[in-house]
């Protein structure tokens, strides 16, 4: 077989990722809300001093957390319907900018450094409301609910005024900054970011081999991350395992832990199949 050039590899990776995202979007669009329903359920039960049963919500939550500890936030990068919506909105915005020969709005990294903590506050607020049994009072303000209803073809959004407004704001944010919602607002992302990720399969680099002064991987990263040194578990909870850094690196110095470079595409497909099988088994 002829050896592929880096550009071809990058293109294939982009298409494969978009394809996987589309499949998950169509087939399992509710996985992210179901997992978060598990979080809400646990704190609601704690609030009323009732035992936590292993129901379908909790099972899906446990499955996704275990998967994240093993492979990093692959779910966020490839399978979450809301994340995919963000990527699509961003891609459309960039395409429009290109067509109209305008520069996309600049986003300052200093904003991100502050906003990154917002999601933990949102998570804390939601679990506190659940714990106090007051969650139902803010039901109409969840942009996720509005989104889920829209994909389910339910357009009775009368009681969801605040939620619809928030969804609009989020979509604008998604256009201005890649992975806006995932990085700054997503309460499920906050839970994922708190998980320890095993270094065996997560993205890392061998610093010594880098081109001096190159920061390609950091610039292409939707979360502006510095990759961890190979073999160390310093992987950031903000990494979506999107793999863009692998293909921008001029020395092909970025890799998934112990996975050989040649098997990279295969590894992506394996992770996808495993994730899909787990979700279906858990009953999404």
């Amino acid at each position: 077989m002829k050896k592929m050039t880096p550009v071809q590899k990058k293109r294939i990776h982009t298409y494969v990722r978009a394809g996987i995202q589309l499949l998950f979007f169509i087939l399992l669009p509710s996985a992210f809300t179901t997992a978060f329903a598990g979080v809400k359920y646990i704190f609601t039960r704690l609030g009323v001093r009732e035992p936590i049963e292993m129901n379908s919500f909790v099972l899906i939550l446990c499955v996704l957390l275990a998967y994240t500890i093993m492979f990093g936030r692959f779910f966020c990068g490839y399978a979450c319907a809301f994340g995919s919506l963000g990527d699509a909105v961003r891609a459309v915005y960039l395409w429009i900018c290109k067509k109209r020969k305008k520069k996309p709005l600049a986003w300052k990294e200093s904003w991100s450094n502050v906003l990154v903590y917002l999601k933990y506050m949102i998570l804390f607020a939601i679990i506190l409301l659940c714990f106090l049994g007051k969650y139902s009072t803010v039901r109409g303000s969840s942009p996720w609910d509005v989104f889920s209803m829209l994909i389910a073809g339910n357009f009775k959004l009368g009681a969801y005024g605040i939620g619809t407004l928030l969804l609009l704001v989020i979509v604008i944010g998604m256009a201005c900054c890649e992975r806006f919602f995932c990085r700054f607002c997503c309460p499920m992302g906050a839970v994922f970011a708190l998980m320890p990720v095993l270094p065996a399969c997560s993205l890392q680099r061998t610093r010594e081999e880098c081109v001096k002064g190159c920061s390609g991987c950091k610039r292409v990263c939707p979360s502006d991350l510095d990759l961890p040194e190979a073999g160390t578990p310093d992987i950031s909870g903000e990494c979506f395992q999107c793999g863009k850094c692998m293909h921008v690196c001029p020395k092909q110095n970025v890799r998934h832990g112990v996975i050989p470079k040649k098997l990279e595409l295969f590894f992506t497909l394996i992770r996808t199949a495993l994730l899909a099988a787990l979700l279906v088994w858990a009953g999404v």
Binding site: S30, T34, A37, N55, S56, F57, I60, A152, G153, A282, G283, V284
Partner: peptide
């Protein structure tokens, strides 16, 4: 048919 599995089960 149109319900999500986990929700219907709950």
């Amino acid at each position: 048919a149109e319900e999500d599995g986990a929700y219907l089960q709950m």
